[in-house]
Protein backbone atom coordinates (compact mmCIF):
# COMPACT_ATOMS: atom_id res chain seq x y z
CA UNK A 1 0.00 0.00 0.00
CA UNK A 2 1.39 3.40 -1.01
CA UNK A 3 0.48 6.59 0.88
CA UNK A 4 1.59 9.89 -0.64
CA UNK A 5 -0.20 13.14 -1.32
CA UNK A 6 1.51 13.70 -4.65
CA UNK A 7 -0.38 11.84 -7.41
CA UNK A 8 2.57 11.55 -9.77
CA UNK A 9 4.87 10.17 -7.13
CA UNK A 10 2.20 7.78 -5.83
CA UNK A 11 1.52 6.36 -9.29
CA UNK A 12 5.22 6.13 -10.09
CA UNK A 13 6.15 4.22 -6.96
CA UNK A 14 3.15 1.93 -7.35
CA UNK A 15 4.18 1.13 -10.94
CA UNK A 16 7.82 0.53 -9.97
CA UNK A 17 6.71 -1.93 -7.32
CA UNK A 18 4.22 -3.69 -9.59
CA UNK A 19 6.80 -4.07 -12.33
CA UNK A 20 8.97 -5.93 -9.83
CA UNK A 21 6.31 -8.37 -8.76
CA UNK A 22 4.82 -6.69 -5.72
CA UNK A 23 1.09 -6.44 -5.34
CA UNK A 24 -0.01 -2.87 -4.61
CA UNK A 25 -3.30 -3.43 -2.83
CA UNK A 26 -4.20 0.20 -2.29
CA UNK A 27 -3.04 3.78 -2.48
CA UNK A 28 -4.08 6.75 -0.34
CA UNK A 29 -3.46 10.45 -0.56
CA UNK A 30 -4.06 11.61 3.00
CA UNK A 31 -3.68 10.39 6.56
CA UNK A 32 -7.36 9.81 7.33
CA UNK A 33 -8.06 7.71 4.26
CA UNK A 34 -4.75 5.87 4.74
CA UNK A 35 -5.86 4.73 8.19
CA UNK A 36 -9.33 3.77 6.92
CA UNK A 37 -8.09 1.89 3.86
CA UNK A 38 -5.32 0.10 5.77
CA UNK A 39 -7.96 -1.18 8.18
CA UNK A 40 -9.88 -2.73 5.27
CA UNK A 41 -7.22 -4.09 2.93
CA UNK A 42 -4.75 -5.20 5.64
CA UNK A 43 -1.51 -4.58 3.74
CA UNK A 44 1.73 -6.32 4.73
CA UNK A 45 3.77 -3.18 4.13
CA UNK A 46 2.69 0.46 4.05
CA UNK A 47 4.96 2.92 2.24
CA UNK A 48 4.30 6.15 4.10
CA UNK A 49 5.07 9.71 3.06
CA UNK A 50 5.27 12.03 6.07
CA UNK A 51 4.17 15.24 4.42
CA UNK A 52 0.45 14.62 4.00
CA UNK A 53 -1.01 18.00 4.77
CA UNK A 54 -3.48 18.44 7.61
CA UNK A 55 -2.76 15.19 9.44
CA UNK A 56 0.78 13.97 9.22
CA UNK A 57 2.15 10.60 8.26
CA UNK A 58 3.34 10.27 11.87
CA UNK A 59 -0.23 10.17 13.13
CA UNK A 60 -1.28 7.84 10.32
CA UNK A 61 1.61 5.48 11.18
CA UNK A 62 0.61 5.45 14.81
CA UNK A 63 -3.03 4.72 14.09
CA UNK A 64 -2.34 2.04 11.49
CA UNK A 65 -0.01 0.18 13.84
CA UNK A 66 -2.33 0.62 16.80
CA UNK A 67 -5.16 -0.94 14.77
CA UNK A 68 -3.09 -3.81 13.44
CA UNK A 69 0.35 -4.20 15.05
CA UNK A 70 1.65 -6.71 12.47
CA UNK A 71 1.49 -4.07 9.72
CA UNK A 72 4.98 -2.92 8.73
CA UNK A 73 5.37 0.75 7.92
CA UNK A 74 8.29 1.94 5.81
CA UNK A 75 8.68 5.71 5.83
CA UNK A 76 9.57 7.14 2.44
CA UNK A 77 10.38 10.75 2.95
CA UNK A 78 12.25 13.79 1.79
CA UNK A 79 15.39 14.73 3.66
CA UNK A 80 15.07 17.68 5.96
CA UNK A 81 12.14 16.18 7.86
CA UNK A 82 14.41 14.65 10.48
CA UNK A 83 12.30 15.20 13.55
CA UNK A 84 9.21 13.87 11.76
CA UNK A 85 11.14 10.79 10.70
CA UNK A 86 12.20 10.19 14.28
CA UNK A 87 8.62 10.60 15.49
CA UNK A 88 7.35 8.15 12.86
CA UNK A 89 9.95 5.58 13.90
CA UNK A 90 9.02 6.03 17.55
CA UNK A 91 5.39 5.61 16.55
CA UNK A 92 6.26 2.18 15.17
CA UNK A 93 7.59 2.57 11.63
CA UNK A 94 10.23 -0.08 11.01
CA UNK A 95 12.37 1.83 8.59
CA UNK A 96 13.10 4.94 6.63
CA UNK A 97 14.21 5.51 3.09
CA UNK A 98 14.92 8.78 1.31
CA UNK A 99 12.75 9.59 -1.66
CA UNK A 100 15.91 9.99 -3.67
CA UNK A 101 16.73 6.28 -3.24
CA UNK A 102 16.98 4.17 -6.40
CA UNK A 103 14.31 1.65 -7.39
CA UNK A 104 16.67 -1.19 -6.42
CA UNK A 105 17.11 0.28 -2.94
CA UNK A 106 13.35 0.71 -2.65
CA UNK A 107 12.64 -2.88 -3.69
CA UNK A 108 15.26 -4.19 -1.31
CA UNK A 109 13.87 -2.06 1.52
CA UNK A 110 10.30 -3.22 0.92
CA UNK A 111 11.46 -6.85 0.88
CA UNK A 112 13.35 -6.47 4.11
CA UNK A 113 10.49 -4.60 5.76
CA UNK A 114 8.10 -7.38 4.75
CA UNK A 115 10.47 -9.89 6.39
CA UNK A 116 10.30 -7.85 9.57
CA UNK A 117 13.80 -6.41 9.39
CA UNK A 118 14.56 -2.79 10.18
CA UNK A 119 15.58 -0.58 7.27
CA UNK A 120 18.12 1.88 8.54
CA UNK A 121 19.77 4.60 6.54
CA UNK A 122 22.82 6.33 7.93
CA UNK A 123 20.63 9.37 8.53
CA UNK A 124 18.10 7.44 10.63
CA UNK A 125 20.89 5.84 12.68
CA UNK A 126 22.19 9.33 13.45
CA UNK A 127 18.72 10.41 14.57
CA UNK A 128 18.17 7.36 16.78
CA UNK A 129 21.62 7.71 18.30
CA UNK A 130 20.93 11.37 19.02
CA UNK A 131 17.56 10.52 20.59
CA UNK A 132 19.08 8.01 23.03
CA UNK A 133 21.71 10.58 24.01
CA UNK A 134 19.05 13.26 24.41
CA UNK A 135 17.04 10.99 26.71
CA UNK A 136 20.14 10.09 28.73
CA UNK A 137 20.99 13.78 29.22
CA UNK A 138 17.42 14.92 29.97
CA UNK A 139 16.16 14.91 33.55
CA UNK A 140 14.67 11.52 34.40
CA UNK A 141 10.95 11.29 33.73
CA UNK A 142 8.49 9.01 35.49
CA UNK A 143 9.52 6.16 33.18
CA UNK A 144 13.23 5.30 33.11
CA UNK A 145 14.58 6.19 29.68
CA UNK A 146 15.82 3.23 27.66
CA UNK A 147 19.56 2.96 27.22
CA UNK A 148 21.73 1.43 24.55
CA UNK A 149 24.27 -1.27 25.39
CA UNK A 150 27.84 -0.49 24.38
CA UNK A 151 27.59 -2.92 21.52
CA UNK A 152 24.34 -1.37 20.27
CA UNK A 153 25.90 2.09 20.34
CA UNK A 154 28.90 0.77 18.43
CA UNK A 155 26.68 -0.82 15.78
CA UNK A 156 24.48 2.26 15.42
CA UNK A 157 27.50 4.51 14.99
CA UNK A 158 28.85 2.29 12.23
CA UNK A 159 25.45 2.31 10.49
CA UNK A 160 25.41 6.11 10.75
CA UNK A 161 28.82 6.16 9.10
CA UNK A 162 27.38 4.31 6.13
CA UNK A 163 28.60 0.77 6.73
CA UNK A 164 26.39 -2.11 5.62
CA UNK A 165 25.49 -4.76 8.13
CA UNK A 166 27.87 -7.16 6.40
CA UNK A 167 30.75 -4.73 6.73
CA UNK A 168 29.86 -4.19 10.36
CA UNK A 169 29.70 -7.94 10.97
CA UNK A 170 33.19 -8.36 9.52
CA UNK A 171 34.59 -5.45 11.46
CA UNK A 172 33.18 -6.51 14.82
CA UNK A 173 33.69 -10.23 14.14
CA UNK A 174 30.05 -11.09 14.83
CA UNK A 175 27.43 -12.64 12.59
CA UNK A 176 25.41 -10.61 10.12
CA UNK A 177 22.28 -11.79 11.95
CA UNK A 178 23.55 -10.42 15.27
CA UNK A 179 24.12 -7.00 13.71
CA UNK A 180 20.53 -6.92 12.46
CA UNK A 181 19.30 -7.96 15.89
CA UNK A 182 21.18 -5.12 17.53
CA UNK A 183 19.70 -2.60 15.13
CA UNK A 184 16.19 -4.03 15.65
CA UNK A 185 16.61 -3.90 19.38
CA UNK A 186 17.50 -0.18 19.38
CA UNK A 187 14.25 0.51 17.55
CA UNK A 188 12.11 -1.79 19.70
CA UNK A 189 13.28 -0.16 22.94
CA UNK A 190 12.52 3.28 21.54
CA UNK A 191 9.03 2.26 20.37
CA UNK A 192 8.22 0.49 23.63
CA UNK A 193 9.28 3.54 25.62
CA UNK A 194 7.14 5.72 23.36
CA UNK A 195 4.07 3.51 23.88
CA UNK A 196 4.54 3.49 27.65
CA UNK A 197 4.89 7.27 27.66
CA UNK A 198 1.78 7.69 25.53
CA UNK A 199 -0.22 5.35 27.76
CA UNK A 200 0.94 7.19 30.87
CA UNK A 201 0.03 10.51 29.29
CA UNK A 202 -3.40 9.15 28.37
CA UNK A 203 -4.05 7.88 31.91
CA UNK A 204 -2.85 11.09 33.52
CA UNK A 205 -5.05 13.17 31.27
CA UNK A 206 -8.09 10.91 31.45
CA UNK A 207 -8.04 10.19 27.74
CA UNK A 208 -8.69 6.50 28.33
CA UNK A 209 -12.08 7.12 29.93
CA UNK A 210 -13.95 5.49 27.06
CA UNK A 211 -12.01 2.26 27.50
CA UNK A 212 -13.40 1.58 30.96
Amino acid sequence: MVVDDHPMWRAGVARDLQERGFEVVATASDAASAVRIAGTVRPDVVLMDLNLGAQTGVEATQQIIAARPETRVLVLSASGEQSDVLEAVKAGASGYLLKSASVEELVDAVNRTAEGAAVFTAGLAGLVLGEYRRMAAAPAGPEPAPELTDRETEVLRLVAKGMTSRQIATKLVISHRTVENHVQSTLRKLQLHNRVELARYAIEHGLDADQH
Binding site: G80, Q82, V85, T121, L124, L127, G130, E131
Partner: peptide, 16 residues
Protein backbone atom coordinates in the same frame (compact mmCIF):
# COMPACT_ATOMS: atom_id res chain seq x y z
CA UNK B 1 26.58 20.35 7.80
CA UNK B 2 23.25 19.64 6.14
CA UNK B 3 24.16 22.06 3.35
CA UNK B 4 26.94 19.65 2.36
CA UNK B 5 24.67 16.70 1.59
CA UNK B 6 24.75 15.53 -2.02
CA UNK B 7 23.74 12.28 -3.73
CA UNK B 8 27.09 10.79 -2.70
CA UNK B 9 27.44 12.46 0.71
CA UNK B 10 25.12 11.47 3.54
CA UNK B 11 24.85 13.65 6.63
CA UNK B 12 23.56 12.04 9.83
CA UNK B 13 22.73 14.18 12.87
CA UNK B 14 20.43 14.19 15.91
CA UNK B 15 16.87 15.50 15.59
CA UNK B 16 17.54 18.23 18.14
Amino acid sequence: LQLMATPSISVAAPAT
